[in-house]
Design a protein around this nucleic acid. Structure first.
Length: 746
RNA sequence: GGGCGUUUAGCUCAGUGGUAGAGCGUUCCGUUCACAUCGGAGAGGUCGCAGGUUCGAUCCCUGCAACGCCCACCA
C-alpha cells in the first residue's frame, strides 16, 4: 500500500500546528488550568502569541493558509489618534468596535486588513507643546525659532506615539503593525504635496484675498468648523454715522464701522426705497467714510432699523455682500485685534475703541438706542479667543467650482460630488439619521481655507520667487535654483487626514495594497468628527481618486462620565481605559463599551459596569476550567449524541443571530446575546442539568457529556472572541494548544 | 430660526405590535460542590404626558413637555 500522500495544504497545516504549539508552550503550561484568569499576565502573553504568529497581517494569513488568496477583502483604517498624549475612553470604544469587525471578518475567512497610524494633529499638538514650553521655560515658540521648536514638537510627538501604540496593543487591537503610518511621515507628505499640486492644477485650490476666521491669540486662520459659538450678552447700539446721514443702523461692534463702505437695506423695504443707489460722504467719529446705499435680500427688515452697515473687511456675510455689489474693502482692525485707523484710538484694542466710540456718539447726540441682546459669539476652538474676521491672502479649496470629475468625466463641483456619493448609495452612513446632518453641512459649506500660520505640519508646497514674490511655483518638489522661497504656512491638519483612506496605501503609487484594500469597507468613528474628518475624506478622495473612500460609515456615540459630561483631563472626570484594563482586564473594558451602546448614541460609563464584565470573564474561565477538569485521559470522544439536539439547535440559533447582528452593525445586540447564552444558558442551565452525569454517570455518559459541553463551550468562545479576544483565546488554548482561535473559522 | 437625539427598575442603559430586560445596587437563603469576581430565590417599572391607528401600543402616527446635541448667525 502506498503511504498516505500529504497534500501541500496538510503539510502547511501540520507545520502551522507545531508552530502554534511551540509558541504557546513557551508562554504557559498547558497542563495546568489556573484557578484564576490572570489578565495582566495572560493578556500580554496572548497579544504576543498573536503578534508572533503574524496573523494581523493578511499577507501572512494567506502565506500560512488561513486565508484563501482569492478571498474577498475587508479593510478598515484606524482613525489615527492625535499624538497629543494618551488614549481616552473614546479611543477605547473605537478600538473595541473596530476590532470586533476586524476579528469577525478575519474569522469569516476574508482577507482582512486594519491599518494603524497616528495623526500629527498640527495645531492641537503645536499648541500643547507651546503651552508646556511656556510653563516650563517661560519661552514662546519665537524665542526658540522654527527649527528648534519643531525639534521639540517632534520629540513630544514621538513620545506620545509610543505611549499610544502601547495602549492600543494593551486593548487587544488586531492591527497590522507592519503597515503602520504617520500623517507626517515622508510617504504621506509626498501624498499631501501630490494632492495639493493636483488640486491646484484642477483649479480647485487657489490663492485668494478673502475674509477668513482669524484667531488673534493663536495668530492663525482657522476653518469654519473650528469655530465654537458661545452665547453671551452684548449691547446693540443704534445710531447714525453723522447728522447728515439719513438712515440709522444697529450694531454690537461700533468699532468696525470705520470700515463701512455701504448701508444695505432690503429691496422691498418702503422706508428706504428712495435711498437705494445714493451715495454719501459722512464723518464718523472724525473719520471720513464714503457710504453707498445698496439693496440686498440678505438684510432682515425686522431687525434693528432694517438697515445694515456693511463692513466688507470684518464680517464674512458683509464680505459676500460686497462681492455682489462690488464694494471696496476697508480694513480697520489688525491681526492683534487692534485698531489701525489714524486718530485717538489708533492701536487700541477693539473693546476699548468700542467704549470710546459710544462716548463720542453720545456727545454728538447720535446714539438713539442701547439695548442688551444675547448673541452667539465666535470663538476659536483651540485657544478660546474671539475670532476676528479679517481679509487675508490665503489658500483655499473651492467647493462650488465646476471641474472635470475623474470618474464620470462630467463637470461637477466638490459639493455635488460629496452629495452624490451618499445620495447615490455608494456610501451608506449609519445610523442613517446622520446622512441628513451630512447634507445639511454640505449645503452650508463655503470655500475651505487650508493654510495655517503655524509651524507644525505640512508646509505648503508653493515657492515664491525671491526677486518677485508675485510669481510662484506649485509643485511636488521644490523648483530648481535657490531663487525661490517656500511658503512659510502649513496646511490644515484635515487636509492630510482627508487623504488617509488611500494615503496609507502609499498613494499616488498604484500599490497592490491600494488595489486590494481601497476603497475601505468601513469607516468607523465618533459622530463628532463627521464634518471635520468624514466629510473631508469624501471630498478629497472622490476628487483625487474618482472613487469613494469607503462603502460604509458607522458612527458611534461619545463616551461620557456618569453625569453625562464629556470626559476630559481638565475636569478630572476621565476614566482611564488603561487603568481599567489593568484592573479588570482588556476584555471587560471592551465589553463594557459595546454592550448597552446603541449605534450613534452616547454612552455613560462607570467603573461598576466594567467590574461587572470582569466577573463575566471570570465566569467564562471557570466554565472552561470545570469542563476541562471533567476530561479524563483516554476518554473516548464520540460524536455528539442525538439526544442533545435541542442544545445544538439553541447554539446554532445563537450563531445565526449573532452573525446577523454583526453584519447589521448591531454589535451591542450580538454581544449581549452571547453574554446571556454563556452565563445563563450554558452555565446556569445546561451545565447545571448535565453535571450530575459528569460526576456519577457511566464512562460512556461522562464522555458524551464532555463532548457536548466542550463543543458548546468552544463554539461560544468563537462567537465571543471578537468581543473578548483575550480570555476566549486563553480558554481555547487550553483545549487546542495547536490552534489559534483568532484565525479559526467563524 | 432649522434639524436631531433622549425620556423604560433606585442608578446607568439595552429592547420589542401580543405576560417587560442587562449591569450595578438592594432583600432573603446557601460556602467540603468549576466559580462568593459565585449559586438560588425575591422586591422593585400604569416603558415622559395627551390623543390617534389597531382585536391589542412601551413600540407605529400626531401633538405637547423636559433634558441634551448639532447647524445657521439678526448685523
Amino acid at each position: 500500500m502506498d503511504p498516505p500522500v500529504k497534500s501541500e495544504d496538510d503539510k502547511k497545516k501540520t507545520k502551522l500546528q507545531i508552530f502554534h504549539k511551540i509558541a504557546y508552550n513557551t508562554l504557559m503550561n498547558e497542563n495546568e488550568f489556573e484557578t484564576r484568569y490572570d489578565h495582566i499576565k495572560s493578556d500580554s502573553e496572548i497579544y504576543k502569541l498573536w503578534e508572533d504568529a503574524g496573523y494581523f497581517n493578511p499577507d501572512i494569513c494567506i502565506e500560512k493558509g488561513v486565508t484563501a488568496p482569492d478571498a474577498e477583502s475587508f479593510s478598515i483604517i484606524l482613525p489615527p489618534p492625535n499624538v497629543t498624549g494618551e488614549l481616552h475612553m473614546g479611543h477605547a470604544a473605537m478600538l473595541a468596535i473596530e476590532d470586533v469587525m476586524v476579528r469577525y471578518h478575519r474569522m469569516r475567512g476574508k482577507r482582512t486588513l486594519w491599518v494603524p497610524g497616528t495623526d500629527h494633529a498640527a495645531i492641537a499638538t503645536q499648541s500643547k507643546v507651546e503651552k508646556m514650553i511656556v510653563k516650563e521655560e517661560k519661552k514662546n515658540r519665537h524665542d526658540l525659532g522654527r527649527e528648534e521648536f519643531l525639534k521639540r514638537v517632534n520629540a513630544f510627538a514621538q513620545e506620545s506615539h509610543d505611549t499610544i501604540v502601547k495602549q492600543v496593543k494593551r486593548l487587544g487591537a488586531s492591527l497590522d503593525w507592519s503597515r503602520e503610518t504617520y500623517t507626517l511621515d515622508e510617504t504621506r507628505s509626498f501624498a499631501v504635496r501630490t494632492a495639493f499640486k493636483k488640486m491646484y492644477d484642477m483649479g480647485l485650490i487657489y490663492r485668494g484675498n478673502r475674509v477668513v476666521n482669524w484667531d488673534p491669540k493663536g495668530q492663525t486662520t482657522i476653518s469654519d468648523d473650528e469655530i465654537v459659538y458661545e452665547e453671551r450678552s452684548a449691547k446693540l447700539y443704534t445710531f447714525r454715522y453723522d447728522k447728515s446721514f439719513p438712515i440709522s443702523i444697529s450694531t454690537t461692534r461700533p468699532e468696525t464701522k470705520f470700515g463701512d463702505t455701504a448701508v444695505a437695506v432690503h429691496p422691498d423695504d418702503p422706508r428706504y426705497k428712495d435711498f437705494i443707489g445714493k451715495e454719501y460722504d459722512v464723518l464718523f467719529c472724525g473719520a471720513p467714510l464714503h457710504i453707498k446705499i445698496i439693496a440686498d435680500d440678505a438684510v432682515e427688515k425686522d431687525f434693528g432699523t432694517g438697515a445694515l452697515g456693511v463692513t466688507p473687511a470684518h464680517s464674512s456675510i458683509d464680505w459676500e455682500m460686497a462681492q455682489r455689489h462690488d464694494l471696496p474693502l476697508l480694513q480697520v482692525i489688525d491681526e492683534y485685534a487692534r485698531m489701525t485707523i489714524a486718530g485717538p484710538i489708533n492701536g487700541k484694542k477693539t473693546t476699548e475703541a468700542r467704549e470710546w466710540i459710544v462716548e463720542e456718539l453720545k456727545k454728538d447726540n447720535l446714539l438713539e438706542r442701547e439695548e442688551v441682546v444675547t448673541q452667539n459669539i465666535s470663538t476659536a476652538e483651540r485657544t478660546g479667543a474671539i475670532v476676528e474676521p479679517l481679509p487675508k491672502l490665503q489658500w483655499f479649496i473651492a467647493v462650488n467650482k465646476k471641474f472635470k470629475d475623474v470618474k464620470s468625466g462630467e463637470e461637477k463641483t466638490l459639493k455635488e460630488l460629496m452629495k452624490e456619493s451618499v445620495t447615490g448609495g455608494e456610501i451608506q452612513i449609519l445610523p442613517d439619521r446622520f446622512e441628513k446632518i451630512y447634507f445639511n453641512w454640505i449645503d452650508n459649506l463655503r470655500d475651505w481655507c487650508i493654510s495655517r500660520q503655524i509651524w507644525f505640519g505640512h508646509q505648503i508646497p508653493v515657492w515664491y520667487k525671491k526677486s518677485n514674490p508675485e510669481e510662484f511655483f506649485v509643485g511636488v518638489e521644490a523648483p530648481e535654483g535657490d531663487n525661490w522661497i517656500q511658503d512659510a504656512d502649513t496646511l490644515d491638519t484635515w487636509f492630510s487626514s482627508g487623504l488617509w483612506p488611500f494615503s496609507v496605501f502609499n498613494w499616488p503609487k498604484e500599490t497592490d495594497d491600494f488595489k486590494t484594500y481601497f476603497p475601505n469597507s468601513v469607516l468607523e468613528t465618533g459622530y463628532d468628527i463627521l464634518f471635520f474628518w468624514v466629510a473631508r475624506m469624501i471630498l478629497m478622495t472622490t476628487c483625487l481618486t474618482g472613487e469613494v473612500p469607503f462603502r460604509k460609515v458607522y458612527l458611534h456615540g461619545l463616551v461620557r462620565d456618569i453625569k453625562g459630561q464629556k470626559m476630559s483631563k481638565s475636569k478630572g472626570n476621565g476614566i482611564d481605559p488603561l487603568e481599567m484594563a489593568n484592573k479588570y482586564g482588556a476584555d471587560a473594558t471592551r465589553l463594557s463599551l459595546i454592550i448597552g451602546a446603541a449605534p450613534g448614541n452616547d454612552i455613560k460609563i462607570s467603573e461598576d459596569r466594567i467590574r461587572g464584565y470582569r466577573n463575566f470573564s471570570t465566569k467564562i474561565w471557570n466554565i472552561a476550567r470545570f469542563i476541562r477538569m471533567n476530561y479524563a485521559e483516554g476518554m473516548e470522544k464520540t460524536a455528539i449524541n442525538e439526544k442533545y439536539k435541542e442544545y445544538i439547535d439553541e447554539l446554532e440559533a445563537l450563531k445565526s443571530e449573532t452573525t446577523k447582528h454583526i453584519d447589521d452593525f448591531e454589535f451591542h445586540l450580538a454581544a449581549e446575546k452571547i453574554y446571556h447564552y454563556v452565563w445563563h444558558t450554558l452555565a446556569d442551565k445546561i451545565i447545571e442539568t448535565e453535571k450530575e452525569k459528569m460526576k456519577d454517570g457511566a464512562d460512556i455518559e461522562k464522555a458524551e457529556t464532555y463532548v457536548l459541553l466542550e463543543h458548546l463551550l468552544l463554539e461560544s468562545m468563537k462567537l465571543l472572541h471578537p468581543f473578548m479576544p483575550f480570555v476566549t483565546e486563553a480558554v481555547y488554548q487550553k483545549f487546542h494548544p495547536e490552534k489559534i482561535l483568532m484565525v479559526e473559522q467563524w
